[in-house]
Amino acid sequence: MSFEFEGKTYETDDDGYLLDLDSWNREVAGHIAEMEGVEMTDAHWEVVDFLRNYYQEYSIAPAIKILIKEMKKMFGPDKGNSAYLYNLYPAGPALQACKIAGLPKPTGCV
């Protein structure tokens, strides 16, 4: 599968996750978010940036608990929780945020 955006073709897997991590940029992330029905705010971008940085280091997305801990650092304790994370990414942080961040879809019993 693939989609067109601003004259460029982006290859994706069957679920719309980018196949090439390096083809990602903020514009296309915004486009994926739009398709997902997510309106990107600063908080959304913070999550996306953290996911990408983590992935660059570990070749896998962080555990939800690690992401939440990081959010606690970024936004304070009242927003460092799973409810706030699902508020940002209603379809699930692991699946939806990874998609917008251009990471592969997490697999396994998750």
Partner: peptide, 21 residues
């Protein structure tokens, strides 16, 4: 080595973070 595709480095980091928690 696992369903997630979590490599040893990421696994060690996750366990460490969990210990901190």
């Amino acid at each position: 080595g696992n369903n997630l595709g979590m490599n040893p480095k990421a696994l060690a980091a996750t366990l460490e973070s969990t210990e901190e928690d």
